[in-house]
Design a protein around this nucleic acid. Structure first.
Length: 1079
RNA sequence: GGGCCAUUAGCUCAGGUGGUUAGAGCGCACGCCUGAUAAGCGUGAGGUCCGAGGUUCAACUCCUCGAUGGCCCA
């Protein structure tokens, strides 16, 4: 055979191989580049790429979120929109520094300073690209189209300059300020963390749960002690006060067994929890008081290692944050180590005790715990408390505690000076903008993100680190309220009088060398040493990727805000937040940040930096556990690509469940779901379409127009049109899962299992109008299927599209300009046929008659259409031959009611009857089961039905019984949802002969194939067997000859003319068959 | 402690403004087909729809309270 017009896809050709071919072809034809060429007048669809950090390897979860990004971009591009796909890299920050620390085998800021910031930052600059090539290669391999030729890079001078502009703009708007607050602090990294960084690191840990009893000052007659609870014993070193709630009731108790001189005090409602449920057995109350009555009382602090300053100390204060939900209702105050404590310290002028250094260690001179990391000092402190007699009881409790998201060190809450973005001042604006975002799923935005914004606190953006965008603030060394914010490199040059030159690097340590005289006093302006939170970098990408406002104002205008972004759920507090917080803070300094005025108010509509967000959840392992290196269950994306291909992986990830549900990644599942579809798709293309079309069909004017094609062709084209628009609608609504499922189900069920299977014979020839109609129809189905699935499975769809059309599917329109339209009546009729076919098969199964044995008749009932029952009967009649063929029956007829096919029987519903008949229920049940079929039919049709029990006659309700239908007569009946299919199982002698003839054909066909004959080879055929068999063959010899391409049949006797005689079993009867190639 | 999500067949997942008998794929059993063949098709078994209350003629669906798992927050 010639190579043919259409290449086939050999089943043993690996997905990897096919996809590599496509990658080469895309590169060669510049397919992606073509999509990046803006055609004038084209509408834009703006996509923002959230920048990854390239100092770690990409994992399978990256493939997941990138598949989502890619598919919506591809879809919109095929819809005719221009989708710019600019890559970006997140290059600053702690992750990079930690990687370099590891590489150098060092840890902590002192080590870094020893090496030198210049060298350290140089290494960071290099380290950040460690896996860049792998990221780019994996993107390419998985079919994630991204333009890596001109990416935005957050450490580049241009990018940093745009970030400076944003910071200065915020400063000028008084939205950037220096504050002193309690901040979560990582002692190992030596820097404070922002709230969204903290959110990344909550872990369940076991911490001490310690109760102490502190002596209250009194008259000396009675020893009164107040109970205090803490989970951070190390902060007791810094205790300066206790807080109670003014309105809470406190109990004073003494031991029943004691002499009444030892009292304890705690919140009344906590006594049972602290002392035991049976505490009244041992304790007796000697009084109660409001918290306000305790205020002002003095007590002795638990540890006296640290000198106190002049502030108030060792006194009970009143605070509304105290609760009786846990602990003792008495809260210990260490103003240096807690936000509430700090605020209380400010309010009450409390002493400020901070005996912990930047590494989180107690100073060496401190007794017992000197030099220890605070979290490691708990045990020694508990022992010390015990020896001092202030320990009441000590245990442990499990709770969730924040840890550094990069190095896993437990965070400490520390009073520190930091720079903040005053986000809380414009949180309403953020809420308003967020309300305009289409979140998928909605609850992430409406509930989770909304709640987070409602509780917004100012964003601590300064970091006492090295590798980051430097904070562009210069501060006077005489008076630190004199601050110059620098918004551009040019401004820096002017202010400092320095020539910045070619090699200017805005990073540390170089940037710190620029200084100038203070404009307000005699002092000198030096840069504040901090760098900024890397989230501020990535959140600046909408404008910084264009070096706005220094150039490209037009590009920013064209590409802001984003129509679409997609990232993992962990970005809610990350990138989703930083984008919104920065854009909202900049307000109209950022063009297009306010959309066209709303018609109602004339006011500009505030927009978020993104209009639609698709949030994907985690990829778990096959057991539903989180993937982690320690568990060894991390899936290598490269292995998946090679083994199953990107199409299979993408189809699986998108279709297995909604993307915002955590999904189990299971290799077996890829094979089962995606692999199965892909196999079917290739089979239909290769094994049916390409294989036979290559005998000489190609699209031409000789193909019958759609209206003249057989009904089943028009049916599949109608379904195709339906699915085409449904899939498109799903993708427009950002529902990739439904889109993928719709398309896949359509292809497997409607195309492969029904249309192709029933029409196989029409593809075995290429000459007639009927053949041409089938090929033209299947080609259209394949073509459109390629297009609707191309965004999700971009490789194999394009492979086939090239074969069918000679062009890339990715440069084709997503929807056809014209379709043959829907014929819903026809679709409904086909539904009837398929349902009846299922029932008919079940009936045959019941009858125990195999499909090859023809049967005489089938009688069907379809549920009445709502009105105009004849509406689809025309189509139904025309489709009946499909049913007859599928079920191998001679005649199919329809009845309007199933009454002739079945008898009705009633079963009692005891629950209902019980209420009516009480004790006589069993009798009633018997009466019901004796009801006649006719009576039940009448009853179903609304007539009254009564039974007599004893002397009593009662009307029955439909509830009282269940009507079951049983086949009556000789027909075998199956019923479902108003459909009935009845098959006459009688095999008459004539049918029997025909069945035998079919058996013969089947056997001969197998022999032809086993003998290696070509499909078109003619044969000579010789058969012998029982009288019945030979009679059957004679009766149907013409048909047999036609089926097996025999030019001559010899039946019985002289069975030695042809060699290769084979003994076979035909339906339990021995027979002999011989075949030979003719001529 | 609070918020959100999930819980449906052995497994992975659909579903429903509350309404006959709750679906699919895989797996399993049985069978068919043998010109898509290292393919294809069918039939069947399998479910107290997480639990308990409530609303209702009717609850898997709505409400309340729980349980378990996940994510997030404090």
């Amino acid at each position: 055979m010639d190579a043919g017009r259409y290449r086939v896809l050999p089943t043993d050709r690996s997905a990897n191989d096919i996809e590599q071919e496509m990658l080469a072809r895309w590169a060669n034809d510049g397919v992606f580049a073509k999509t990046q060429e803006f055609k004038s007048g084209q509408q834009r669809y703006v996509f923002f790429e959230g920048p990854p950090t390239a100092n770690g390897r990409p994992g399978i979860h990256h493939v997941f979120s990138r598949a989502i990004k890619d598919l919506f971009c591809r879809h919109r591009a095929m819809k005719g929109l221009f989708v710019l796909r600019k890559a970006g890299w997140d290059t600053h920050g702690l992750p990079v520094e930690i990687e370099v620390e590891k590489q150098l085998g060092i840890s902590g800021k002192q080590d870094i300073e020893a090496i030198g910031v210049e060298k350290f930052n140089q290494l960071c600059r290099e380290s950040v690209w460690k896996y860049r090539a792998e990221w780019e290669k994996l993107s390419e391999r998985m079919g994630f189209w991204l333009d890596y030729s001109d990416p935005y890079v957050t450490y580049s001078n241009n990018y940093v300059e745009s970030v400076w502009w944003a910071l200065k703009t915020l400063y000028d708007r008084e939205r950037l300020y220096r504050g002193h607050k309690i901040l979560p602090y990582c002692a190992r990294c030596g820097t404070a963390l922002s709230s969204h960084e903290v959110a990344l690191g909550y872990k369940d840990v076991r911490d001490p749960s310690v109760y102490i009893a502190l002596d209250l000052e009194g008259d000396g007659q009675i020893r009164r002690r107040i109970l205090v609870w803490t989970t951070t014993p190390w902060t007791l070193v810094s205790n300066v006060a206790l807080a109670v709630h003014p309105d809470l009731e406190y109990s004073e108790l003494t031991k029943r067994s004691g002499d009444g001189t030892e009292h304890i005090v705690l919140a009344a409602s906590r006594a049972a929890a602290v002392l035991g449920d049976d505490f009244t057995d041992r304790w007796v109350s000697v009084g109660t008081m409001k918290g306000s009555e305790l205020v002002g009382a003095r007590y002795a602090r638990p540890l006296d290692w640290v000198a106190l300053d002049a502030g108030t100390n060792q006194v009970i204060v009143s605070e509304n944050f105290v609760s009786a939900d846990d602990g003792t209702g008495v809260v210990h105050m260490a103003p240096a180590f807690g936000a509430d404590d700090y605020a209380a310290g400010q309010r009450h002028g409390l002493s400020f005790v901070q005996p912990v250094d930047g590494r989180g260690e107690f100073p060496p001179e401190l007794p017992v715990v000197g030099g220890l990391f605070v979290k490691h000092a708990d045990e020694k402190i508990i022992a010390e408390l015990k020896s001092r007699g202030v320990l009441w009881k000590a245990g442990t409790m499990e709770h969730s505690y924040p840890h550094c998201w990069r190095c896993d060190t437990p965070l400490l809450y520390y009073a520190r000076t930091s720079w903040f973005v005053r986000t809380s001042a414009y949180k309403d604006a953020m809420l308003a903008r967020n309300a305009r975002v289409q979140w998928h799923p909605p609850e992430i935005g409406d509930a989770r993100f909304n709640e987070w914004l409602t509780n917004n606190i100012d964003w601590a953006i300064s970091r006492d680190r090295y590798w980051g965008s430097p904070l562009p603030l210069w501060i006077c060394d005489q008076d630190n309220t004199h601050v110059d914010a620098v918004g551009s490199f040019a401004e820096l040059g002017v202010k400092s009088g320095a020539e910045l030159g070619e090699g200017f690097d805005p990073h540390k340590p170089y940037i710190d060398s620029y200084s100038w005289p203070c404009s307000k006093c005699d002092g000198t302006m030096h840069r504040t040493p901090e760098v900024i939170d890397t989230w501020f970098d990535s959140g600046s990408m909408p404008f910084a990727q264009w070096h706005y406002p220094f150039e490209n104002a037009d590009k920013l205008g064209d590409n802001y805000p984003a129509d679409f972004i997609a990232e993992g759920v962990d970005q809610t507090r990350g990138w989703f937040y930083s984008l919104l917080a920065i854009a909202t803070g900049l307000e109209d300094s950022l063009p297009s940040n306010t959309l066209s005025p709303s018609p109602g108010t004339g006011e500009g509509v505030r927009t978020a930096p993104y209009k639609s967000v698709v949030v994907n959840d985690l990829v778990l392992d096959s057991e539903g556990r989180k993937m982690s290196k320690s568990k060894g269950n991390v899936v290598d994306p490269w292995m998946i690509m090679e083994k199953y291909g990107a199409d299979a992986a993408r189809l699986f990830l998108v279709s297995s469940s909604q993307v915002w549900v955590p999904r189990r990644f299971d290799e077996a599942a890829i094979r089962d779901t995606a692999g199965r579809f892909l196999l079917t798709f290739k089979n239909v293309y290769s094994g049916i379409f390409a294989l036979y079309a290559n005998f000489g069909w190609e699209p031409s004017d000789a193909d019958p127009e759609v209206a003249k094609r057989p009904l089943i062709d028009r049916w599949i084209l109608s379904r195709l049109a339906a699915v085409e628009s449904e899939v498109d609608a799903a993708l427009e609504a950002y529902d990739a899962t439904v889109a993928a499922r719709l398309a896949m189900t359509f292809f497997v069920d409607d195309v492969s299992n029904w249309y192709v299977r029933l029409n196989r014979a029409r593809f075995y020839d290429v000459d007639s109008a009927d053949n041409r109609a089938a090929f033209a129809t299947l080609r259209e189905v394949l073509l459109v299927t390629c297009r609707i699935l191309a965004p999700i499975a971009p490789f194999v769809t394009d492979w086939v599209h090239y074969e069918l059309e000679g062009t890339s599917v990715h440069l084709s329109p997503y929807l056809r300009a014209e379709t043959t339209g829907r014929d819903t009546g026809l679709e409904r009729a086909m539904e009837h046929i398929r349902t009846l076919s299922t029932l008919g098969r079940a009936a045959r199964e019941d009858a125990g008659v195999k499909v090859r044995q023809p049967l005489s008749r089938m009688v069907c009932v379809v549920p009445a259409a709502p009105s105009g029952a004849e509406a689809d009967s025309g189509d139904l009649r025309s489709l009946v031959s499909l049913l007859a063929g599928e079920l191998n029956v001679k005649e199919v007829s329809f009845l309007s009611s199933a009454d002739a096919l079945v008898t009705l029987e009633a079963k009692a519903n005891f629950r209902a009857l019980g209420k009516k008949f009480g004790k006589s229920t069993p009798l009633a049940a018997r009466a019901i089961e004796a009801l006649s079929s006719d009576a039940l039919i009448a009853f179903e049709n609304g007539e009254n039905l009564a039974i007599s029990v004893g002397n009593d006659s009662r009307e029955l309700d439909l509830d009282d019984l269940t009507i079951v239908r049983r086949a009556s007569g000789s027909m075998i009946v199956k019923e479902a949802l108003g459909y009935f299919a009845a098959i006459d199982p009688e095999v008459t002698p004539a049918l029997r002969m025909e069945g035998l003839a079919r058996e013969v054909v089947s056997k001969v066909q197998r022999m032809r194939k086993d003998s290696g004959f070509a499909v078109s080879d003619r044969i000579l055929l010789e058969l012998s067997g029982s009288d019945e068999l030979e009679a059957a063959i004679r009766a149907h010899s013409e048909w047999i000859a036609n089926e097996v391409l025999s030019v001559g049949i010899t039946v019985g006797g002289g069975a030695d003319k042809i060699h290769a005689m084979q003994a076979v079993d035909i339906d339990g009867q021995p027979a002999s068959i011989a075949i030979e190639r003719a001529g």
